[in-house]
Design a protein around this nucleic acid. Structure first.
Lengths: 207, 207
DNA sequence: ACTAAATTTAACCATACGGTTAGATTTTGT
DNA sequence: ACAAAATCTAACCGTATGGTTAAATTTAGT
């Protein structure tokens, strides 16, 4: 057994695998490419992770597991809805900015194989969002939100927060902007979106 | 040469390929699976389309080409902005409802290989959206829109229209709804979204 | 210092998968 | 009716790729 600096092989493999799987998908990824990126012998992949499936599964699940508690945390702070929503938007954007490849990765893999992760996520995510939905519902009944079903409100929020990261390549093409212009675009978005989300969901005048 | 009923082999292959490529992606798709789905001998795939690459390219490009003129058409009708936006939302939702797998398919493939389609799409899409952006810009300068850069407005619109189709699997999990409930969810969304989009982008009171 | 375990390497294996081929069958044109 | 072309089948091929193995090297424990 080794530690500190040395123990990096297993981690290096994981990091390389994460990069490759997230950009190429399960079947698009090549074990050799992962090994090259990690700068280790291909056999090491199997030494530490048995198989491509197993390695993928680790990357896939950790991609999600890592995010869930952070997101769930934001939704369960004890704050009035408006503050909570604004806070959620800010922190969620920060989070996703640090992990911009995860959403499309997860979406594509779930689409290919809905069964792989479903039950696992059900308990982890679904339940944690429920209190937030309830809180929206309460405010809605008091007439403090836009007059839409809470699920629609939730999906509107998620859509606006997440889509630009998923659709980056297409957006860059149709808006004809390069990487750095896109980054600017995101920065701009981070500035106004929290307030905008509050407005379009909590301001009853907006609909 | 054959026609009518007979000429179906080539078409059957294409349709099968479309289904498989769109749900599994280029490398996730198996030629045998496509052949099975089309109920033909695997050699037929190569007889009609030479290679997996070529077949994929056809599916990929046609997935997009088919949609571009329809979408572009919606954006270039001679209508006041509000009517155009509402019309766009309605028709776009209809269109995407008929082709719900295309957005995620295209996004994933563009992400894996941004070069494959970029220049081709640049000319086709980018230019066609420009007049719409200009029209928004004009109204914005008159103070008739929300005070955001036109690109942000455009992305907000696209996000709200398209994300539910891309994120279907994840949404079903976190909202804990089945296929038919999701379809209901979409129907509900189709009803309110056009008006909602107009409100949140054209009503200056909304921000 | 010595041994045993952990880690790494290079060379090899098995096979899934994309692709080919030769020939059968069907269709088309005259 | 016949030949030529188009369409289709089954059987096969080559190789990329995931995976294995045996032996070398490094590390850890005493």
């Amino acid at each position: 057994m080794q530690n500190e600096e040395q123990s990096s092989t297993e981690v290096k493999i994981f990091e390389a695998a994460r990069e490759v799987f997230q950009s190429k998908g399960l079947e698009g990824a090549r074990m050799q490419e992962i090994a090259d990126k990690a700068e280790i012998n291909k056999s090491m992949l199997h030494y530490y992770y048995r198989s491509k499936e197993k390695l993928f599964e680790k990357v896939y699940q950790l991609s999600i597991i890592k995010l869930i508690p952070q997101i769930a945390g934001l939704l369960n702070e004890d704050l009035p809805l408006e503050a909570k929503l604004r806070n959620f938007a800010i922190k969620y954007l920060e989070l996703i900015k640090l992990n911009p490849d995860i959403p499309l990765f997860v979406l594509h893999e779930m689409n290919k194989n809905p069964g792989r992760l479903k039950t696992f996520m059900l308990n982890e995510v679904g339940k944690k969002i429920q209190p937030f939905l309830n809180q929206i519902q309460e405010e809605r009944e008091k007439g403090n939100t836009v007059d839409l079903p809470v699920e629609q409100i939730m999906v509107n929020i998620i859509s606006l927060l997440i889509f630009p990261f998923i659709g980056r390549q297409v957006l860059q093409v149709i808006l004809n902007i390069d990487d750095s212009e896109f980054d600017q675009f995101i920065e701009e978005r981070i500035k106004y979106l929290p307030d905008y989300l509050v407005k379009i969901t909590l301001d009853k005048n907006s609909l």
